[in-house]
Design a protein around this nucleic acid. Structure first.
Lengths: 161, 161
DNA sequence: CCAATAAAAGACATAAAAGTCTTTTATTGG
DNA sequence: CCAATAAAAGACTTTTATGTCTTTTATTGG
């Protein structure tokens, strides 16, 4: 199974659930860049698009944005492309989601909730809070660098079958 | 605090997260209809829209759809409106989500996952599975009838303050 | 320096979700 | 039966998300 195929497996779960296409593409791209970066290789948009099966121009835009926000590094010109500095490869899925969609997914109790519902929270309120926390923890624990390592191990395993 | 206000508290959590506006409005409307239905009152679209702070024509469309699918009952003409039969008031939030968005939110392991990832699931895969299950259970447990009962109790409590 | 390369920037296009309006159909009380 | 009422149905508009294209800017190897 291909790298892309494997990613699809994992994110098939998520995509209808929490993440926008933008976030989905961003995460796939970041993992791919991380893998290449570990080998000291910078990758161009075309290659990223092909490898992660994302629309070329769209992923370009997304990475542009992430680059401005410092989650990924880039260099123009020949031998240029996208890459991750040591520090960046330690960023979590949560960081990516935050960078793109803001932290609305995580900020739990907005305006109203602080007053009434926190004092006397309804049962469902608490359940949701828990789910949110679970999602946050999950995304926070999933570091791009770690993730790509694990993926590679699995891939190796899978390829031997 | 008003009924609408209270609902806002609860769904402020959810709306950026899982549910479309359509689902959000649907749930608010259903709870409102349930409360009225318990008193044997049928409610019109205008009243529902006002009470749940949803766009009138839009909630009309949504309830039309839910009505076709049997989740809510309706009657045309004077003294007509929407209401819930005993059976319908026992429907869960999960039922509503399913009726509108299909069960893509719950069907967990789609195509790819059955083969490779289930055999050797990646850590994140399992976490997501758990979150999904949590969400499903939460939505399945939340029955419209029960929910409106609880809300009413809270409302009474709040009003006495 | 210069030609080639690749990202950045900005404008544009398409699709999906959300929201609105008008006409039709069913039901009721008088 | 009839006029009023209210949902059903269908067409339409607006907004947001997604996706595409063109031009500009930075970098490199020769």
């Amino acid at each position: 199974m291909s790298f892309i195929g494997f990613l699809f497996f994992i994110f098939a779960f998520v995509k209808e659930m929490i993440f926008s296409k933008t976030v989905e593409y961003a995460i796939r791209a970041m993992i791919f860049i991380a893998q290449k970066s570990k080998k000291g290789i910078k990758v161009g948009i075309k290659e990223i698009a092909k490898a992660t099966d994302a629309p070329e121009y769209f992923i370009g835009k997304i990475l542009q944005d992430l680059s401005r926000k410092g989650l990924v590094q880039s260099l123009k010109g020949p031998t240029g492309g996208f890459y991750l500095e040591e520090e960046s490869s330690n960023c979590s899925l949560a960081d990516i989601v935050k960078a793109i969609d803001g932290n609305k997914l995580f900020t739990g109790c907005g305006l109203g909730l602080k007053s009434c519902s926190e004092i006397k929270p309804c049962p469902i309120h608490n359940e949701f809070k828990k789910v949110r926390e679970d999602i946050y923890n999950m995304l926070e624990d999933a570091r791009i660098g770690e993730f790509s390592k694990k993926l590679e191990k699995k891939l190796t395993f899978l390829r031997r079958k």
